[in-house]
């Protein structure tokens, strides 16, 4: 039996107990959601759905810009030395995923912005001549539009992966030492984005399509989870201890009930019935998916900080 007494005894003194608060999970969730949205919206653009579908291509980029800014704001709130925020952009540290992330986030803004140019919404039309002109130019060259779709998808994937890679690069936190983390966050981001569109779109086609897609993402997420868990379980003792924080440790109730149960299985079941027209679509399933995605970030960030090599 081992008895380890360390003289750093409280949260203030012992950073092992607390590093990041709510801001980082929210940032990661919004980042993942935006990533999903960019992939979906980019895909619709690529598929020329921008000619028919209203919602995804029309409003999504704007919403994404807002959500992304919300995420960035959460990140900003987390910084302890806020007035030096700009220092992120005076350097590029290639070994630092956080540096990569901040630059990725920065180029996502123009990508989303050009996306908005594909169809400028009625109220804005004719307000900013330059935008109208650019929009017209895009329509003269559909290949550009296709590229905008590709750009959004690529950056979306990069962003989605980044949210996971950011954590998995921390060798010090065994729970995050999984190559599956980027996949998990990416799929979760996609499913959240799909649920989001499903939740707020008025377009029947989009809703049906994204509900189906979401089912696929949720199923995939289950597999990724399987991989994530078995990967850690078959690794060293610290990793086993780490993943057991989720499986039967202090985070297990939240993990099983809110992330797996209410966040994946229940909405998956509901949506399976709904897409097969056994029941009507309601807001319940997508809301559950979104909350599940958010909880996932919280659980992974908190349990990860709790996990140590000691």
């Amino acid at each position: 039996m081992q008895e380890l007494t360390i003289t750093r005894h409280n949260e203030m003194i012992d950073p092992l107990l607390h590093i990041w608060g709510w801001e980082i999970p929210v940032y990661l969730f919004l980042g993942g959601l935006v990533a999903g949205i960019m992939i979906i919206s980019g895909y619709f653009v690529l598929q020329h759905r921008y000619r028919h579908t209203v919602f995804t291509t029309f409003y999504l980029p704007y919403i994404a810009l807002a959500l992304l800014s919300g995420g960035m704001f959460a990140l900003f709130l987390d910084l302890e030395h806020k007035i030096y925020f700009w220092r992120l952009y005076t350097t590029f540290e290639w070994t630092s995923p956080m540096s990569w992330g901040s630059w990725i986030l920065l180029i996502i803004y123009p990508a989303l912005w050009v996306n908005t140019l594909i169809r400028i919404p009625e109220p804005f039309k004719g307000k900013i001549p330059l935008f109208d002109r650019l929009s017209a130019l895009l329509h003269q060259h559909p290949v550009l539009i296709r590229n905008i779709g590709v750009l959004n998808m690529v950056l979306g994937v990069a962003l989605g992966m980044y949210t996971g890679v950011l954590l998995s690069s921390f060798g010090a936190r065994p729970l995050w030492n999984s190559a599956m983390l980027w996949a998990l966050f990416l799929v979760s981001g996609l499913s959240a984005a799909a649920a989001f569109v499903h939740l707020i779109t008025t377009d029947v086609y989009e809703r049906e399509m994204l509900a189906k897609a979401d089912n696929a993402f949720l199923t995939l997420e289950l597999f990724v989870f399987g991989g994530f868990i078995t990967g850690l379980l078959t690794s060293t003792k610290v990793h086993i201890d780490a993943v057991r924080l989720l499986l039967d440790g202090p985070y297990a109730p939240v993990f099983w009930v809110f992330v797996i149960g209410l966040g994946i299985l229940v909405p998956l079941a509901i949506q399976l019935f709904a897409v097969n027209h056994k029941i009507r679509h309601t807001a319940i399933a997508p809301i559950l998916v979104l909350l599940g995605g958010l909880t996932l970030r919280f659980v992974i960030v908190y349990a990860g900080q709790y996990s140590t090599w000691a």
Binding site: R8, M12, I13, D14, P15, L16, I19, W20, D78, L79, E80, H81, K82, Y84, F85, R87, L88, S96, M98, S169, F170, G171, A172, R173, Q305, T308, W309, A310
Partner: peptide, 26 residues
């Protein structure tokens, strides 16, 4: 200290818990 933005990445990255954030933010 003048370059630090207090993002705490380094705090999370240290397996020994050797770092903390000074109340002044770094």
């Amino acid at each position: 200290y003048d370059k630090c933005i207090g993002c705490k990445a380094c705090v999370a990255s240290c397996p020994y818990g050797a770092r903390f954030i000074n109340p002044e933010g770094y």
